[in-house]
Amino acid sequence: MSSARPRPVSGDPAAARPVLDAPDVGRALTRIAHEIVERNHGADDVVLLGIPTRGVTLARRIAQRVEGIEGRPVRTGSLDVTMYRDDLRMRGVRPLEETDIPAAGIDDSVVVLVDDVLFSGRTVRAALDAMGDLGRPRAVQLAVLVDRGHRELPIRADYVGKNIPTSLRETVHVLLDEIDGRDSVLLGPAEEAR
């Protein structure tokens, strides 16, 4: 399955208000790339794992930037967490996304999980469980483009593109050029309870 398969954005993006435009998204990713390099004293041990769908795209973009800074490629992959979610039984069955771990594995590396929006923290919890079955990284860090608050688990991000305070009734849509044809983060009125 293609990890770049477009997923329809729920709600009506026309009714939503942009909170980050394309240059903002680019600058946020550049800053995250620098922070990753700074904090890990380089990027030799770093593996960027995107959570499908948009996390994978973001991981690739951050990897390009890190490569620009460090001058050598960064290991990048994707990690599907569907089989580890705690809400599988509450919702319909979901198709699986691609899991693609770099050939060298993740043992003793610093895994940076990348996702578009950090909300309840449940996706990240599922990702931590999924990683436990794949190997034993030396450390795991979390990078997100948007932190919208409302955590339901003791999880926080190490690298945040933008903190956007939201109400539970609002929705956050991250649009990315590769999938949606443009870069933007939209804050919209809620269409249904999550």
Binding site: T53, T82, M83, L88, R89, M90, R91, G92, E97
Partner: peptide
């Protein structure tokens, strides 16, 4: 087995949110 049992009682295939 996953597709028959993995979800709840709902049968529709939803996209991950």
């Amino acid at each position: 087995l996953y597709l028959l049992l993995g979800g709840g009682m709902a049968e529709a295939v939803e996209s991950a949110a």
